[in-house]
């Protein structure tokens, strides 16, 4: 049981670091925003492993759901500007 959880947490950690790298170094801005949402989503799975279901629900609903859409609303409005 704990070995399975350890391996899962290692995989999640790698996924989070990779998504964070994409979010910081990715080419387009929309890809960066989506990758940041993926970091939050993987983090919410990690919270379930850490026995924190309340935090996991909050992170999934707010961190990876609403925040991503807030970014997209603003990005839709500044489209006239240069994208990096």
């Amino acid at each position: 049981m704990s070995t399975v959880m350890f391996v899962m947490s290692l995989l999640l950690a790698c996924a989070m670091i990779a998504s964070a790298y994409v979010a910081l170094r990715g080419q387009s801005l929309s890809m960066a925003v989506l990758a940041a949402g993926a970091v939050s989503l993987f983090a919410s799975v990690m919270f379930v492993l850490l026995a924190a279901p309340d935090v996991a629900m909050t992170e999934a609903a707010i961190g990876s759901g609403l925040t991503t859409f807030l970014f997209f609303f603003v990005m839709g409005r500044v489209k006239g500007g240069k994208d990096d």
Binding site: S2, L24, A36, S40, M46, A51, A52, G63, M75
Partner: peptide, 29 residues
Amino acid sequence: LRMTVAFSIASTGTHLVLVAVGYIPGRTA
């Protein structure tokens, strides 16, 4: 906007650290 994305990633990291500090191995929610 990229700076804002970076700040939100940093805050996710802070949440992860705080939850991990409260975890005790072998216990439930």
